[in-house]
């Protein structure tokens, strides 16, 4: 009994050796791994295959937040359906909004689709602060990494130089990747650059690669496709000569595949996040490559 108690108390009393970083999405975790390097550990609360809007608020995530020094959040209400309860129950003031241990990536990137005027859910499930899916764009990842480097340096000044160096290195690589793919896509004729998206989650991708989204398969964001609207999508695709339907892996593919088949095109399933065995740059490269191969033909 005494031994168990001493062990438990020692667990409580152990000083945090390395930074414990918990990220809400796999993309944020992947970026964090590049910047944190060997000076800390990074865990992701959701996987690339999960829709980040609808992650289960499992109590094991509360436990991760309880032990965290820094939580990375995508922001713009992407995690509003599951993260706030976890944060309150985590019983860890370090990671509450407003603290240094709470990092909201949306504060550091250029935002697109920020609504003006009154937001009405009759328009679908609109994110009131802007479109949250900015990590499809490596340039946003670069900005996030730089800001993350600053925050990590603040939390752990001993390794500040290392964090800044790694962040800068990653940002340069990400910007370089973005620029090289942008140049390749610019060489494609304008008629090949029209695409259809399943969910309105691609504005940053479109902005990066200069693509034009002519319609979405969802009639409104967050609303399931219905036969009438799907017919309209098909008609629009044929009229405008768009051949590619793009969606993340965490959306159902049946409807998109049917539409693509009828329009004699194809579905491109892009990663929803960074997979378990890859880096962020590999994931961004993979996204661009699959799109490029689909649009080139």
């Amino acid at each position: 009994m005494r031994i168990i108690l001493t062990f438990l108390l020692t667990l409580l009393a152990m000083p945090a050796q390395a930074l414990n970083v918990v990220a809400s999405t796999s993309d944020l975790a992947a970026i964090a791994r590049e910047v944190v390097g060997p000076d800390g550990q990074v865990t992701a609360m959701s996987k690339a295959s999960q829709d980040p809007h609808y992650v289960d608020a499992r109590p094991s995530l509360t436990l991760q937040l309880n032990k965290a020094d820094l939580v990375l959040v995508n922001g713009l209400e992407l995690e509003v359906g599951w993260l706030p309860t976890l944060l309150t129950n985590a019983r860890n003031t370090k990671v509450l909004p407003g603290s240094d241990g709470y990092f909201d990536a949306s504060n550091f990137v250029r935002l697109l689709e920020v609504p003006v005027g009154k937001i009405d859910r009759a328009q679908g499930d609109i994110h009131p602060g802007g479109n949250p899916h900015f990590l499809h764009d490596p340039r946003a990842a670069a900005k996030t990494a730089v800001a993350l480097g600053d925050r990590l340096a603040k939390l752990d000044p001993k390794h500040a130089d290392a964090f800044h160096a790694r962040a800068k290195d990653f940002a340069q690589k990400a910007d370089g990747l973005a620029a090289s793919w942008k140049a390749k896509f610019d060489a494609l004729p304008a008629s090949s650059r029209k695409i259809v998206a399943y969910h309105a989650s691609l504005p940053y991708l479109l902005d990066w690669l200069d693509l034009a989204q002519i319609i979405t398969v969802e009639p409104k964001p967050g609303i399931q496709p219905n036969p009438g609207h799907v017919a309209k999508v098909l008609k629009t695709m044929r009229e405008q000569g768009a051949k590619v339907v793009i969606q993340e892996a965490y959306y159902p593919t049946k409807t998109s595949q049917t539409i693509a088949q009828m329009a004699k095109g194809k579905v491109v399933v892009i990663p929803g996040g960074t997979g378990p065995d890859e880096t962020y740059l590999q994931r961004a490269d993979r996204t661009a490559k699959e799109l490029y191969d689909a649009l080139k033909n």
């Binding site: 713009l76 250029r110 009131p128 802007g130």
Partner: peptide
């Protein structure tokens, strides 16, 4: 105009969105 929001965001990191 395009540059301004980025500067604004960097200058006011305490709040984001609404």
């Amino acid at each position: 105009v395009a540059d301004a929001p980025v500067e604004a965001a960097a200058a006011a990191p305490a709040t984001g969105g609404l």
